[in-house]
Simulated assay, not measured.
Amino acid sequence: MAEQRSFDALVAEGAAVPTEGWDFSWFEGRATEARPSWGYAPSAGERLARAEAALDIQTGGGEVLDFALGRAGAARPVLVAATEGWPPNVAKATALLRPRGVVVVAAPDDAPLPFADEAFDLVLSRHPVRPDWAEIARVLRPGGTYFAQHVGPSSVFELVEYFLGRQPDAVRGGRDPERERKDAEAAGLEVVDLRAERLRMEFHDIAAVVHFLRKVVWMVPGFTVEAYEPQLRSLHERIEKEGPFVAHSSRHLFDVRKSTP
Rank of each mutant, 00 (worst) to 15 (best):
R5M: 14
D8R: 14
A15M: 07
A15K: 03
A16I: 06
V17A: 02
T19V: 09
W22V: 06
D23E: 02
D23T: 02
W26D: 07
F27I: 05
E28F: 13
A31W: 06
P36I: 00
W38A: 01
L48N: 07
L48H: 05
L48G: 08
A53G: 10
A54K: 07
L55M: 07
D56L: 06
Q58I: 04
R71M: 12
A72K: 05
A72G: 09
P77T: 00
L79K: 15
A81Y: 13
A81V: 12
A81R: 15
P87K: 07
K92Q: 15
K92A: 15
A95R: 12
L97W: 05
L97Y: 01
R98M: 12
G101V: 05
G101C: 02
A107Q: 14
D109H: 15
D110V: 05
A111F: 05
P112R: 08
D121I: 10
D121R: 00
P128I: 00
A137H: 11
L140D: 09
G152Q: 01
P153Y: 03
S155Y: 01
L159V: 04
L159Y: 07
E161L: 02
F163V: 09
D169G: 14
D169V: 14
A170F: 13
V171I: 13
D176F: 04
K182S: 15
L189M: 03
D193F: 12
E197C: 00
G222T: 01
F223V: 00
V225W: 02
A227D: 06
L232E: 06
F245W: 09
V246C: 03
R251M: 01
D255W: 11
V256D: 06
V256F: 01
K258H: 11
K258Q: 08
K258R: 12
